[in-house]
Amino acid sequence: MINVENLHKSFGQLEVLKGVSNHINEKEVVVVIGPSGSGKSTFLRCLNGLETPTKGKIEIAGIELTHSKTKLHELRKNVGMVFQQFNLFKHLTIMDNITIGPRKVLKRSKEESEALARELLKKVGLSGKEESYPDELSGGQQQRVAIARALAMKPKVMLFDEPTSALDPEMVGEVLQVMKDLAREGMTMVVVTHEMGFAREVGDRVIFMDGGYIVEEGTPEEIFTAAKEERTKNFLSKIL
C-alpha cells in the first residue's frame, strides 16, 4: 500500500530524515513512536506531500508521490490526514466541514454528501452537532469531526499526526476509541503518537524513530517487552 525508499528531508541545513525506508501493507496499523525531533511527524507529513522530500521515493496505492508529474491534490484524495491541532475550517459548520471535500473535490451532490456526513457523525458519536461551529465543540469533539472529515473522502490510508497530544486528558479516550473502531474495520493507518497503550492494543507494528532514522521496528510485543536497541529501551524506560 505504502512504499518508502531512502527518504531524506532537510529544512535548510538541518537534516530531519536521514534515509527512511519502509513498507506498509493494506489494512496494517503502524504506530510510529520516538522522542520529539526524531523526525516522526516529518515522515508522516511527507506521506501526503505536505512536506516535499529532499531525496528518496514514496509510492502510495501504486502512485508515485515523488514523481514530478504526480498531482498532489489527486493523490491526497486517497490519503486522509488528522492533525494535532484538528484544523477544522473555523468559518464552516460541522456539516459543511465534512461535506466540503466530497462536494467540491469529488463533485458529489449535496444530498449524497450530507447523508454520508450524518452517517460519519453517528459513527464518531456526534449526531446532532451538524449545525454547530468548531469553536463551540470541545477538543475531543473537534478531533472526532476532523476524523469524520477525512473519512468523508473515502481514503485508502489514514494518517494521524499526534491526534491526542493537544487534548485534555479526559478527552483522549473518546478519540482513541474512534481510531480503534477504524482499525478494526480494516483501515490502513499510520499513527504518530505518544499513547503507548493504543500502540500496544491496536498496532500491528511499532516503528521507533530517533535522530532521523528508523532505529527499530517490530510487533508491539517485541518492542515493548523485548527491544533490542539501547536507544529504544532508553526511550521506553522514560515514557512507560
Binding site: 489527486e74 484524495k77 486522509g80 466540503i100 469529488l106
Partner: peptide
C-alpha cells in the same frame, strides 16, 4: 494544510 489534505 487541512484543505490540501482533503485533496483541494
Amino acid at each position: 494544510e487541512a484543505a490540501q489534505s482533503i485533496g483541494m
